[in-house]
C-alpha cells in the first residue's frame, strides 16, 4: 500500500464502515426481530401483510438499507476472518472476487424481492 500514494486507505475505511454499519444494524436487526416475531407472529405472515408494510416508503427504504448494510457487514466480516487466517496472493484475490460477486447478487436479488413484495 505504501507504493501507491492514495488518499483512500482501504484499511481504515473498511474498518470504519464495519463499525458504522454495525451501529445501524444493532438497531434495525432488533427492530426487525421484534416486528416480525412479536408484533406480527412469524407464522401469521402473509403476502398482503408484507405488502402493506412495504408500501410505507420509510419502511421500504429502511429494509433496503438493512439489506445493503447487512450484506456489507457480513461479507466484509468473512473477508476479515480470511485475512486473519493469513490468506494471501491468488487465494486472497479469489476470495475478494467470490465474496464481492456473492454480495452483489444478494443485494440485487434482495431488491427484486423488496420491489415484488411492495408491488411497485
Amino acid at each position: 500500500m505504501a507504493e501507491r500514494y492514495s488518499s483512500f486507505r482501504s484499511g481504515s475505511t473498511a474498518w470504519l464502515l464495519q463499525r458504522i454499519t454495525a451501529a445501524f444494524l444493532v438497531v434495525v436487526l432488533a427492530f426487525h426481530f421484534f416486528n416480525l416475531h412479536f408484533v406480527t407472529h412469524a407464522a401469521d405472515i402473509e403476502f398482503a401483510g408484507s405488502q402493506a408494510r412495504m408500501q410505507n416508503v420509510g419502511y421500504f427504504v429502511t429494509m433496503v438499507l438493512f439489506l445493503v448494510t447487512a450484506t456489507f457487514h457480513g461479507v466484509n466480516g468473512i473477508y476479515n476472518a480470511l485475512v486473519n487466517q493469513g490468506i494471501e496472493g491468488n487465494a486472497k484475490r479469489a476470495a475478494q472476487v467470490v465474496l464481492g460477486v456473492a454480495g452483489l447478487l444478494l443485494v440485487v436479488q434482495g431488491i427484486r424481492v423488496a420491489i415484488a413484495l411492495a408491488g411497485f
Binding site: 403476502f47 444478494l106 436479488q109 434482495g110 424481492v113 413484495l117
Partner: peptide
C-alpha cells in the same frame, strides 16, 4: 432468508 423470500417473485 432472501432465497425463501424470493418465492414472492
Amino acid at each position: 432468508h432472501i432465497a425463501v423470500l424470493s418465492t414472492s417473485l
